[in-house]
Simulated assay, not measured.
Amino acid sequence: MELSKLKGGYDAVFSLGDLCLASIQLKKHNLRPFSGVLDWMASPTLSTVNELLENRFIGFMDYDNLRVIGYADSNICVSDDAYNLVSNHDFSREKNTLEFLGSYLEVMEKYERRIQRFLHQMQTAKRILFVRTEGTLEDAASLQNTLSEMVKHDFNVLLINHTPVKWMVEKHCPLEKVCMMEFPNEDIWEGNGELWKEVLSDIYLTKSK
């Protein structure tokens, strides 16, 4: 899919990881009207994100699968080993310790709301954009197949990989619903702002247009 075909209006836009970067950029460009499930989590492998979506989030952050990694500033860093996810922002040190996650039920109530909102949009939104950083063509193909089963209407995927390029590169992608780009990997947090702006230009939320 070519970048030009990605442009236009969407009823919903969701980040699918792999870090907070995508959700930060979506918010900066007014494309994040509500929180997604993976906005503030690390999800380094797209294959396990595909598995999470295939399972409709069943088993997500189950207590028996959690492993406390250590401190992350004012929070406790927690891994969901079943889905290879890491939470750095959910479990504050005020309510949790390395030995006991006291706010677990509270955190899961928040995620249950986000999951139900996500699944609702899959059935009701006329056009959805999913944004993901880091993923292979093979995993992108699996993602397209999974989303084709979940999304009732239309959707597209923007997949951005960070590689040793000097500027933005649009990759040829044989997948009908996936646009693949490459961004420089030297400073992914601050150095590619203009590239995100260019890619996300002429993409807008239909309800705000």
Results as ranks from 00 to 15, higher is better:
20 C>A: 13
108 M>S: 01
117 R>E: 13
155 F>C: 03
91 F>A: 09
58 I>W: 11
13 V>N: 06
88 N>V: 09
85 L>S: 08
14 F>D: 11
38 L>G: 07
152 K>N: 02
31 L>C: 04
67 R>A: 11
143 L>M: 00
156 N>P: 09
76 I>D: 00
69 I>V: 14
200 L>P: 08
93 R>Q: 12
88 N>E: 13
45 T>E: 15
5 K>P: 12
43 S>K: 04
109 E>S: 14
75 N>R: 07
86 V>F: 12
138 E>A: 05
204 Y>C: 07
70 G>C: 01
209 K>Q: 15
24 I>A: 15
50 N>Q: 07
11 D>I: 00
27 K>N: 15
89 H>L: 08
16 L>N: 12
172 H>D: 11
16 L>Q: 08
199 V>E: 05
119 L>D: 01
34 F>I: 09
150 M>I: 04
118 F>P: 11
148 S>Q: 10
15 S>N: 00
166 K>H: 14
83 Y>Q: 01
167 W>L: 13
195 L>M: 09
11 D>F: 09
107 V>Y: 12
3 L>M: 13
151 V>E: 00
6 L>W: 02
7 K>M: 01
153 H>W: 02
96 N>G: 01
154 D>P: 00
147 L>Y: 01
138 E>G: 05
164 P>C: 04
120 H>C: 13
60 F>L: 07
44 P>I: 04
196 W>Y: 14
88 N>S: 11
208 S>L: 10
162 H>P: 02
51 E>M: 12
34 F>G: 15
2 E>Q: 15
195 L>Y: 12
192 N>A: 01
8 G>L: 00
89 H>D: 06
123 Q>I: 01
182 E>W: 02
32 R>Y: 15
129 L>D: 06
190 E>A: 10
58 I>N: 14
48 T>C: 10
160 I>M: 04
101 L>K: 05
69 I>A: 08
82 A>T: 12
61 M>R: 06
163 T>S: 10
170 E>P: 00
92 S>L: 08
14 F>W: 08
16 L>A: 10
204 Y>V: 09
148 S>A: 08
163 T>G: 12
195 L>G: 14
179 C>Q: 03
73 D>C: 11
209 K>Y: 14
47 S>G: 06
151 V>W: 03
156 N>A: 09
171 K>I: 06
189 W>H: 15
188 I>K: 13
27 K>L: 14
90 D>K: 11
184 P>Q: 09
140 A>T: 00
156 N>D: 05
71 Y>V: 04
172 H>L: 08
197 K>D: 12
